[in-house]
């Protein structure tokens, strides 16, 4: 009996929490959420950059929390504040660098194949929201650069019609977007992206698509060379 069949026969599922549990266990069983191994084709440097972007994002968030705790007077004046401010900037640079290489890799292996369209869409979404988050970060430098960026950006935003509400020359509003709304949005969409990768599996190389056991649900066998496991 498969796990799905066992879940279908669960007797006492009559509440929304029980139904949600069964649905989640079917969609994302623990061995898929936290797998022991990956298909052999994942043993390539091109699969490293997504995790690189997530690692960079964690440093961005950690350094951002330290900046929030101490405030602008600290990170504009003290040596340690300058260091953490720079760490925040350069981890963002590293995140975009790794994210773009990840995007190139996934684009050229057509990673939306095999029912992974939503994984691709959430990846594009996280890229777009990260750009807005980075943009509001540049507006918070409180120097001539940030003034210049705000006054160049406001013309584009006014032309699109949202400038009256999303006012880039309103420092307080941009600060709140940068430290609350946008980090929540980036975090949520990245978590969704990773969960979808776990649900659908890592996209195989194009010539291995026919034997993608994570897509077909057929267990890997020794006769399928692309399904050899990496410990």
């Amino acid at each position: 009996m498969t796990q799905d069949e066992r879940l279908d026969r669960e007797p006492d599922v009559h509440t929304w929490t029980g139904r949600a549990r069964v649905w989640m266990l079917k969609k994302l069983p623990p061995d898929k959420l936290l797998p022991e191994d990956q298909p052999s084709y994942v043993a390539s440097w091109i699969y490293v950059f997504g995790m690189g972007a997530i690692g960079s994002l964690l440093i961005v968030i950690a350094s951002g929390v330290i900046l929030s705790l101490n405030g602008p007077n600290w990170y504009h004046i003290s040596a340690l504040g300058h260091f953490v401010n720079s760490l925040h900037l350069w981890s963002v640079e590293l995140m975009f660098l790794t994210m773009v290489v990840h995007l190139w890799g996934k684009f050229w292996m057509a990673s939306w194949r095999g029912g992974r369209a939503l994984t691709w869409i959430t990846g594009v979404g996280s890229f777009a929201v990260s750009i807005v988050a980075a943009f509001t970060g540049y507006l918070l430098q409180t120097n001539f650069d940030s003034q210049w960026i705000a006054f160049e950006g406001k013309d584009a935003l006014n032309a699109s019609g949202i400038g009256a509400w999303f006012n880039v020359s309103n420092l307080g509003q941009m600060f709140m977007w940068h430290v609350t709304l946008l980090p929540l949005a980036v975090g949520a969409i990245v978590v969704l992206h990773v969960v979808l990768v776990r649900m659908r599996g890592v996209v195989p190389p194009i010539d291995a698509a026919a034997t993608d056991s994570q897509l077909t649900g057929v267990p890997a066998t020794a006769t399928e060379p692309t399904e050899a496991k990496v410990n």
Binding site: S40, A43, S44, F49, L97, V101, W104
Partner: peptide, 25 residues
Amino acid sequence: IIILTMLALFGLALVLPFPGSGGRK
């Protein structure tokens, strides 16, 4: 410099062997 670094990393990721993958199918 950033764009050239990204292109170099992309190219190297495609050609460099991944550690620990030697001998595996």
